[in-house]
Computed example of a mutant assay.
Amino acid sequence: MSADRERHTMTDRDIALLLADAADGAEIGIAPTQAVIRGGRRRRARRWAIATATALAIVGSTATLALAGLPDGDGHQVAPAATQRATTTPDAFQDAPHRTTLATGTDQGKKWKVFIDVWGAPRDEAEAQVQLTAMAEYEESAPDVRKASDLVGKVAYFVYRGYGDTTSPVLENTVVASDAMSDTDLTSGALPLVPGAGNPVRLGIGSVAKTAERVLCHMKDGDGISLLKAPASEETDNVEPAIRSAEGSPYNWFVCVAPKGTEFESAEVTALS
């Protein structure tokens, strides 16, 4: 399979921010590891935040840098809690995000989870302004949006990792509502399951086409984990890693967790066998 890989150059400011955070011992999110795109097609890079300054050494990085959140007084990055505020109208506009849990589990006696907030695309500038105000209440800021009109027709999404009592934003992006992935298109990134610089990079998160039926996650020890598409009707408290839909998202999502003693390396969409 042939594929074009997007490459983006970090600015001096990006590097300075990374080094400053690394010097403080701060972890600021997820490191891009792979993006497979259909030949000849340019897709805007997802905004994966780099986990530590050592991630600067990653070859063929496929995404721009974005600081995904600001720490609270204890140095933790906290996602706002979902509330029962406004519900969505029959159209795409909304003033509260669709929140979908992508995976949950237990590690070293602590609960972990990955979830995504998706904001539907406003139809006009007035709706966009209301939505931007609502996003601020959730402490979410749409990337590359300088004014309300920039958000018209675009879906914004934010992915979070929770571990124990700590919840951190790890990915943010805005895409045209009609955007879609197809065939074997895939983007993925990785970060430590346990928060903190220097911990093993065991957590892989990625997006795939809605038609993808199977994702194979490769580990650095040579083993692999096969993920299948979860039934649409599945609603449980314990959400096992799988390929899952997220309401409002133009893509499906998957989460892989490497076993102790190894790390997540890459992922690919494969055919059912």
Rank of each mutant, 00 (worst) to 15 (best):
A3E: 10
M10F: 06
L18N: 00
L19D: 04
E27H: 05
E27Y: 05
I28V: 12
R42E: 12
R44Q: 11
R46A: 08
I50Q: 00
A55W: 00
A55V: 00
L56M: 06
I58G: 01
T64K: 04
L70I: 13
D74E: 12
T87D: 07
T89G: 09
F93H: 12
T100E: 12
T106Q: 11
G109Q: 03
G109H: 07
K111N: 14
K111W: 02
V114H: 00
D117V: 07
G120P: 04
A121R: 08
R123D: 14
D124F: 11
E125I: 11
A126R: 14
A136Q: 15
E139L: 10
E140C: 04
D144I: 07
K147V: 09
D150M: 04
D150Y: 04
V152S: 08
G153N: 01
K154D: 02
V155Y: 06
A156T: 06
A156L: 01
Y157C: 03
Y157Q: 05
D165I: 07
T166R: 13
T167L: 04
N173L: 02
V176E: 11
V176I: 08
A177V: 09
S178G: 01
D185V: 12
S188L: 06
S188K: 01
G196L: 03
A197G: 10
S207N: 14
A209V: 09
H218N: 06
G222V: 04
S226Y: 10
A230P: 10
P231C: 11
S233K: 09
T236E: 11
N238E: 15
N238K: 11
S245R: 14
A246N: 11
Y251V: 08
W253Q: 09
V257L: 09
V257W: 01
G261W: 00
G261P: 06
E263N: 04
F264Y: 14
E265C: 02
A271K: 10
